[in-house]
């Protein structure tokens, strides 16, 4: 951290959509490190038109890797979406038991010992990134994978290898990793180097450069939720004619 800044970092993640190829490695890595049950994804990769704005013909089917437009005038990009860790998070506001809380570093977390499973947060989240643990979850063969231990921050139980039935789960920015100076696992495993994680309070950090000068934007910024996940817009669109 640069000298003279606050001692509390402001954690943000920047995802460069010019580098994302929709491979799902981040999502599978998330599933691994967090031991997510089958059918649950804290992190998903959407196929979109570049920058979600296009006048091109809608996709022929609603599947991944299906482009907008008409062959050969087609276009496609990808948008990985997990918890946006909002500064003004609707999920925090609606939680009746303060199970969802925001740390000073910007990380939004769920205290699994407080969560009562009311799912108000799921309804409130405009990004659709929270999942409800219905219990009896099945897992990939091989037993518990990933971090494998409980993790607490300021006394809150924010990670368990197998979450109990009836809680709401979501991306934690890999709090157990970032608290010891490591990168979130999706950043670590991204084969494209599309994800950057760091401290927005440090003007020299790569995330600061990308947010302040690289034109990175927030999803649904108009809602005023102030996400701490930013996206570098897609600069290129394939032109079949040059």
């Amino acid at each position: 951290m640069a000298a003279g800044t606050s001692t509390t970092p402001h954690h943000v993640m920047v995802i460069d959509t010019n580098r994302c190829v929709g491979c799902w490695t981040c999502a599978v890595g998330c599933k691994e490190v967090n031991n997510e049950p089958l059918g649950y994804w804290w992190n998903r990769v959407l196929t979109t038109a570049p920058n979600q704005s296009t006048s091109a013909k809608k996709p022929a089917s609603e599947n991944i890797d299906v482009p907008w437009g008409e062959y050969p005038n087609v276009e496609m990009s990808y948008l990985p979406v997990a918890c946006q860790h909002c500064n003004d998070a609707p999920c925090v506001k609606v939680c009746p038991v303060q199970a969802t809380f925001r740390r000073d570093d910007g990380t939004v977390l769920v205290d699994y010992e407080r969560c009562i499973g009311c799912r108000y947060c799921i309804a409130a989240c405009p990004y659709g990134v929270r999942v409800f643990n219905w219990g009896g979850g099945e897992y990939a063969p091989g037993g518990v994978v990933g971090y494998g231990k409980d993790y607490r921050t300021d006394g809150h139980l924010v990670f368990e290898p197998e979450r109990p039935k009836g809680v709401v789960e979501k991306c934690t920015f890999c709090v157990e990793r970032i608290d010891v100076g490591e990168q979130p696992f999706c950043v670590e495993v991204c084969p494209l180097g599309a994800r950057v994680f760091g401290d927005l309070n440090d003007p020299a950090s790569e995330v600061s450069q990308l947010v302040n000068e690289g034109g990175a934007v927030q999803l649904l910024a108009e809602l005023g939720t102030e996400p701490n996940v930013y996206y570098v817009p897609t600069r290129r669109r394939v032109m079949t004619e040059t």
Partner: peptide, 9 residues
């Protein structure tokens, strides 16, 4: 079948 404009007619 998966219909997609990603493939040439």
């Amino acid at each position: 079948a998966r219909l997609t404009e990603a493939i040439k007619p």
